[in-house]
């Protein structure tokens, strides 16, 4: 089981602020260390800037102030970082098969020639090996999301960024994907930053829940979820789980009140 903190953070955000051109302050002096191998959730209501924080880490957007520092091993020579990103929607190319979608990151990196075994391995990890030649529209919502996760994993990134990936799925599918994601995380030893607005999902998955205040986004508090892995349906129905959920809910309620103060 991965433990933290160990060594230096994979990525460290210090006093990061983000103000959009419209004048909206999305993030205000956010500081967050992400440790190697940990599973950390950013929890907050919509509009608290948690997705913005994730986009900043991914390099899809530049901070207005503060800085984002990477561990030496993560900074590639060409400035690109080894990270995978899973969007809220599956974000698959509808004109390409599942295998071609998963192959995309390798193709863009000019590694298409050696991609086949890696694509097959990534599909197998998410249980989609039989659907390699299917088109996205032929898949269910949960399977599309699995394909999206396979695509994020195919480059074997050390850091996986997930932006409310299961928010649009039904509860049964979401629970199954939660379990599968935890199994993948324990097996692959990746670092995961998971954005969600669900208290229950954040507690079930994470070692650490970072609660954010809305408008502007700021860290209100963070709570460690010390329950052991592997976590399964027994954990989901346990008194421990209910206790953690209550703690996190109360923290979130506090964050909402703090956010409403001028």
């Amino acid at each position: 089981m991965p433990s933290f903190p160990s060594g230096s953070p994979v990525v460290a955000l210090s006093d990061v602020g983000k103000t959009f051109a419209s004048g909206v302050v999305a993030l205000d002096r956010l500081s967050l260390d992400v440790w190697p191998g940990e599973f950390v959730s950013l929890l907050g209501p919509s509009g608290c800037g948690k997705s913005t924080a994730l986009r900043l880490i991914a390099g899809l957007s530049e901070p207005s102030s503060g800085k984002i520092e990477w561990a030496q091993a993560e900074a590639d020579t060409d400035g690109g970082r080894r990270l995978g990103f899973v969007f809220q929607e599956p974000t698959l190319m509808p004109w390409a098969t599942v295998a071609a979608n998963v192959r995309l990151p390798l193709k863009l990196a000019g590694a298409a020639a050696t991609a086949a075994p890696r694509v097959a391995a990534a599909l197998e990890r998410v249980g989609l090996e039989k659907f390699a030649d299917s088109y996205p529209r032929e898949l269910s919502g949960g399977m599309k999301m699995r394909a999206s996760i396979a695509r994020a994993l195919v480059t074997e990134p050390n850091l996986l960024l997930m932006d409310e990936p299961f928010a649009a799925l039904d509860e049964i599918t979401r629970f199954r994907l939660n379990n599968d994601l935890l199994a993948l995380w324990e097996f692959l030893q990746k670092t995961v930053v998971f954005v969600t607005h669900s208290v229950f999902e954040s507690v079930y998955l994470s070692q650490r829940v970072v609660v954010m205040t809305p408008r502007p986004g700021r860290i209100f508090t963070e709570l460690a979820i010390d329950a052991p892995y592997p976590r399964d349906e027994r954990f989901r129905t346990s008194a421990d789980y209910a206790g953690y959920c209550r703690q996190v809910s109360e923290a979130l309620a506090g964050a909402m009140i703090a956010g409403e103060r001028p």
């Binding site: 390099g59 060409d78 690109g80 990103f85 969007f87 974000t91 995309l104 863009l108 990196a109 480059t155």
Partner: peptide
């Protein structure tokens, strides 16, 4: 965004 992320 995905294409940007992978440096297309």
């Amino acid at each position: 965004d995905l294409f940007r992320l992978y440096g297309a």
